[in-house]
């Protein structure tokens, strides 16, 4: 059993039946998460990330497909064995309002036959000074950290974190990244979901990009970025830019051109060789630039390339 992957999903499908319509939340997903890796599911709102994760946690029953978690299957009499070895942080959980941080952790600690002490868990997410604060007196980020702490109590082998850093300030986020890295360093496996590309790139060994319930790309962050053909991006922001997409992508050294709104992103191997002819081209067509920027290619570019959309609206 130790040879098996942490999670194996084959042909996973989940259809939500509403009175008249159906929503296909997960649409034929195949995925293997290896032991000891941090795997990130990246995708826009409604892509099916939470549904996928909750199927792995045994909370949602798939419509079709095969799910193996730590070599076992849900609803075959092994549920307790799986639960004893996983830690879960749901996308939203409201703990009881009038319980302190310590009391909440004590409740979850007693759910596990063995595991970390409450103090240790508080220290991991830096909530020690809030030990005696009640739930209602915690900020959103502190609640989020508490939720993560509850997941760590049972010393799980496999950790599910559904958007663990949403709403956290940069410092708490870094801290949480450290928690994840330490966990992995001790041999743990993590399946996390996120909207933050930077986070995915920094934290995950491998990433699966999900859109409309399908896995549209899979690989390590550098692999995914390399798949664009170049690792530099030139972004031009200008009205009427759509008229020059074809010409721009034909310039030597341009690997691909992705248009989103009035912003053109050119993926290139070398910025120096592309910028001069590009400026000439724009001048020749009489297009006035509002902005020009160059940067390293990111997972965002991969997503835009694959879907023609930005991962998060605010980036558009």
């Amino acid at each position: 059993m130790s040879g098996s992957a942490a999670i194996e999903l084959h042909g996973l499908r989940k259809v939500y039946q509403k009175r008249r319509s159906e929503v296909v939340a997960v649409d034929g997903l195949d995925l293997i998460v290896q032991r000891g890796e941090v795997f990130g599911l990246l995708g826009p709102n409604g892509a099916g990330k939470t549904t996928t994760v909750e199927i792995c946690e045994g909370l949602t029953e798939p419509t079709a497909g095969d799910v193996a978690v730590l070599g076992r299957r849900w609803r075959t009499g092994e549920d307790q064995q799986i639960r004893a070895r996983i830690g879960v942080c749901l996308q939203e959980t409201k703990f009881l309002d009038k319980q302190t941080v310590r009391e909440t952790l004590e409740l979850f600690a007693c759910c596990h036959p063995s595991g970390r002490s409450v103090d240790e868990a508080m220290a991991l997410v830096s909530l020690r000074e809030k030990a005696n604060a009640r739930q209602v007196a915690l900020s959103g980020g502190q609640r989020q950290r508490l939720a993560v702490a509850t997941a760590l109590l049972g010393e799980p082998e496999l950790l599910f974190l559904d958007e663990p850093t949403t709403g956290l300030d940069p410092q708490s986020r870094r801290q949480l990244h450290d928690v994840v890295r330490t966990f992995r360093g001790q041999g743990g496996t993590v399946l996390l979901t996120t909207h933050y590309m930077e986070e995915a790139a920094q934290l995950c060994d491998r990433i699966g990009i999900v859109d409309h319930g399908k896995l549209i790309a899979l690989g390590s962050p550098p692999e995914l970025i390399r798949s664009l053909g170049g690792d530099q991006v030139i972004e031009i922001d200008a009205a009427g830019i759509d008229a020059v997409v074809a010409a721009a992508s034909a310039l030597p050294g341009v690997q691909r051109a992705d248009l989103a709104g009035e912003r053109l992103a050119l993926t290139v191997g070398s910025v120096h060789s592309v910028v001069p002819p590009l400026l000439e081209l724009l001048a020749a067509r009489g297009i006035a630039m509002r902005g020009l920027a160059t940067r390293q290619a990111t997972l965002e570019d991969v997503f835009v390339h694959l879907t023609g959309r930005h991962l998060r609206e605010d980036k558009a």
């Binding site: 946690e57 045994g58 909370l59 639960r83 749901l90 939203e92 959980t93 409201k94 009881l96 596990h112």
Partner: peptide
């Protein structure tokens, strides 16, 4: 408030 689900995924 999802607290029962959260408890359900522990071995309790």
């Amino acid at each position: 408030q999802q607290l029962l689900r959260r408890l359900l995924v522990t071995p309790i």
